[in-house]
Design a protein around this nucleic acid. Structure first.
Length: 722
DNA sequence: GTCGCATGACACCTTACATC
DNA sequence: GATGTAAGGTGTCATGCGAC
């Protein structure tokens, strides 16, 4: 890799600056990754991502006030932390002085981040100061930080996403010198808690507390780049592009080699990895009895641990139960699981005893299921000793919620069972998670982002993916398959926009969502609506201005002239004489006509309509054949249009049913029938007939969409208008 | 009138934190 | 450690709207 990289950002050529990629801090981070045996390829890709991200941040060496907002999009459990740590190192080497990390809204997440950041920058304290709002309260003030800066030390402050913590960090930037120090702000899990949850509130307060605090932080720091880091960017992309947290740029971070996520677990092989809990089973929450599926999950957990040990893999092995968000449920599940594990431990201890047979049946059944799934296994007899060992050395059931934090106890074991709710969601990594039992789901509509973040079973599991399993309900299995399709399409859209150089804010906000029981994100943060196109869209308003009419007509004439040889005259009657230009590509007409046409600010047709349509077609990977039809192009038309340009009559002409009449006519709505699989753009040249002084013809559009297309488009959603 | 859907009000759960 | 408060998230229910 070259040492100095001249960066030419993809979308904004005013902002060219040079990035040095082998400075002191970057090398520290890189060395630690090497020590921790990251594959070379992964290290290079992490550094490349950091360069790409930093290149879109403001140049810290220019003395001006500027700020930008970006989003770094990764995959759940794909190691986004390494990426933003590298970014901080690179930013320091290139002139940034301070890094503020909003490290999650729970203490366990903050702690996880603090530990990771400290481990990644094993540098001289005289070069870098790492502080966190929980432990260094007395140092986080303008005076002390200014002194550190004077001593030429870089600063990282990691804070909890809570009002007081953020305000504490904000306060130091009241100091003028600090306020102009180039600062990079990392918002970890940036779709959670930071965005405005009061956007649609009827209260007087239109800003949620954390959002308000973050905006204050942003305003205080005169030169900064604010980077949201998340695997579920739906909310960030769906909020108003005028919102200060709406990203100006986005960077996709492909997961490294060996990552197993949505496509492995919930794509074509979902039946192998996801086991559906039968609906007629007794509930885990019943006062007595334990569902068969729980025994199955436990047995597959111990068998799979035995398999890994047999293969020489003695790493951590974990089982997670996520039954519900309620603490009372966790307690009852812990009790049930503990009773089973205790009894299995007793049986495993005396495996020659007849009592062992009942345990053995469970284990053999789990073994057979793995065999049936095509997992390469030795004989059960060869595995048995390893399996029983796993049972004997298994931890107590770790309750993981606000009452009890199991993380410390789990370090004492290699084989761990966890039970939790909200504390085992987003952000948290459970080492060696192989089996998950999850039945938590809203009774009605679930959010895609929240649901996806519960997938703690994703991660770098290539070495033992064959034995990983998820036990869940049919509904949750379906949810994840829909999310898999949604996520693929989302990445595709952003990648394509990147290749085409489309600025992030201009990417069509169209997303795939094929499930009626899923919405993309919380409705208090951002709303969506179905991509619902009618068969016909008849333009109901124009700019009533002769110059505009001439310009719009010129666009149409140019298309006509460029395709002279393809024009076909279609005569239905004496007065119904149309001109057809068949078989154009939608994308071409979009570029040459709809992008340039001048639309009124009111009315039902504007560039946004065609942008949405185009984004929808891109998702469908289609560029539909489109015909242009100049309707009654010689005689033209007159309609009742008011002075504001609003069409008061019906634009489309009805049929003349008299078959014997020389004026028999099928009607404008039937014109697409013979070529019903194509889009038809009808051009109606219309003059106002009730107001004087407007003696010119204005082109109005009628857009016909084939039902196949409108149906296919209805599986997508876009930003809500309200 | 029925159905599906969006929306808002409200209650409850979970978490963090301040106070005693 | 117990208690109360603030904040964010989830779930349920009533209501209203438009399509049929």
């Amino acid at each position: 890799m070259s040492d100095v990289i001249k960066v030419i950002p993809k979308t904004d050529n005013k902002n060219v600056w040079t990035i040095k990629s082998d400075g002191y801090y970057s090398n520290c981070v890189k060395n630690v990754m090497e020590e921790e045996d990251y594959p070379d390829e992964s290290i290079n890709s992490i550094i490349q991502n950091a360069i790409e991200t930093l290149s879109q941040c403001p140049d810290p060496n220019i003395n001006d006030e500027s700020s930008k907002t970006g989003i770094v999009i990764g995959k759940v459990q794909s190691g986004k932390t390494s990426n933003f740590i590298s970014l901080i190192g690179l930013a320091f080497d290139n002139g940034y002085q301070i890094a503020v990390v909003l490290g999650g809204n729970k203490n366990n997440l903050l702690e996880q981040n603090v530990t990771r950041i400290k481990n990644s920058f094993r540098v001289d304290a005289m070069k870098l100061v790492i502080l966190d709002t929980n432990k260094n309260d007395d140092v986080i003030n303008a005076n002390t930080i200014s002194e550190f800066i004077k001593q030429n030390r870089k600063i990282i402050i990691i804070g909890l996403k809570h009002q007081k913590h953020i305000d504490k960090m904000s306060d130091i930037f009241n100091n003028y010198k600090l306020s102009i120090a180039p600062t990079i702000i990392i918002d970890d899990e940036g779709d959670q808690a930071t965005l405005n949850t009061k956007k649609y509130s009827k209260d007087k307060k239109k800003m949620s507390t954390i959002y308000e605090s973050v905006l204050k932080l942003k305003t205080r720091i005169k030169k900064h780049c604010f980077i949201s880091v998340t695997a579920t960017p739906q909310a960030n992309i769906l909020i108003d592009t005028l919102d200060l947290l709406s990203p100006d740029f986005g960077v996709l971070v492909d997961p490294g080699i060996g990552y197993c996520g949505l496509s492995e677990f919930h794509g074509d092989n979902q039946d192998k990895y996801v086991k559906v809990i039968p609906e007629d089973e007794i509930s885990l929450f019943d006062s007595c009895g334990i569902p068969i599926s729980v025994y199955e999950a436990l047995a597959s957990f111990f068998v799979s641990n035995g398999v890994r040990k047999y293969r020489g893999d003695f790493g951590n092995h974990a089982l997670l139960f996520h039954p519900s968000q309620r603490k009372v449920d966790h307690a009852s599940v812990v009790e049930k699981l503990q009773s089973v594990v205790d009894s299995w431990k007793n049986k495993a201890d005396c495996y020659e005893d007849i009592a062992y047979q009942s345990l053995k049946r469970h284990l053999v059944s789990a073994y057979d299921k793995y065999k049936n799934d095509g997992v390469n296994l030795p004989s059960f007899v060869d595995l048995e000793e390893f399996i029983l060992d796993s049972i004997k050395f298994c931890s107590k059931i770790h309750l993981t919620n606000s009452d009890t934090d199991a993380s410390k106890n789990s370090e004492l074991y290699k084989t761990n069972i966890f039970v939790g709710g909200n504390m085992v969601e987003r952000g948290l990594t459970i080492k060696g998670l192989a089996i998950t039992y999850i039945i938590r789901r809203a009774k009605t509509t679930s959010n895609v982002d929240n649901t996806e973040q519960r997938a703690r079973w994703f991660g770098y599991k290539e070495a033992y993916i064959d034995i990983c399993r998820v036990y869940t309900t049919q509904q949750i299995k379906d949810d994840f398959h829909h999310i898999f399709e949604h996520d693929e399409a989302l990445w595709d859209t952003i990648k394509k926009a990147e290749q085409q150089g489309t600025p992030f804010k201009e990417i069509g906000r169209v997303f795939k969502n094929n499930s009626r029981l899923l919405r993309l994100t919380r409705s208090n943060v951002a709303r969506t609506q179905k991509l619902d196109f009618d068969q016909f869209k008849s333009q109901n308003s124009v700019i009533l201005d002769e110059k505009v009419a001439i310009e719009n007509n010129r666009l149409l004439e140019k298309i006509k002239n460029d395709n002279k040889e393809k024009l076909i005259n279609i005569r239905y009657s004496r007065t119904q004489n149309h001109l057809l230009l068949p078989n154009l590509k939608f994308s071409i007409i979009k570029k040459d006509l709809f992008n340039l046409y001048k639309y009124p600010t009111t009315g039902n047709l504007n560039k946004g309509f065609f942008d949405l349509l185009e984004a929808g077609f891109q998702h469908l990977k289609k560029d539909p054949i489109t015909d242009i039809l100049w309707v009654r192009y010689e005689t033209k038309e007159e309609r009742n249009i008011d002075e504001s340009g609003r069409m008061l009559s019906t634009l489309m002409q009805g049929h003349n049913p008299n078959v014997n009449s020389p004026d028999f006519y099928i009607g404008d709505r039937k014109l697409p029938d013979e070529r019903a699989d194509n889009i038809q753009v009808q051009v109606h040249l219309v003059k106002p007939n009730k107001i004087v002084g407007y003696d010119f013809y204005l082109p109005f559009f009628v857009i016909y969409l084939p039902s196949k297309l409108t149906e296919a488009l209805s599986s997508f959603v876009t930003k809500g208008e309200k």
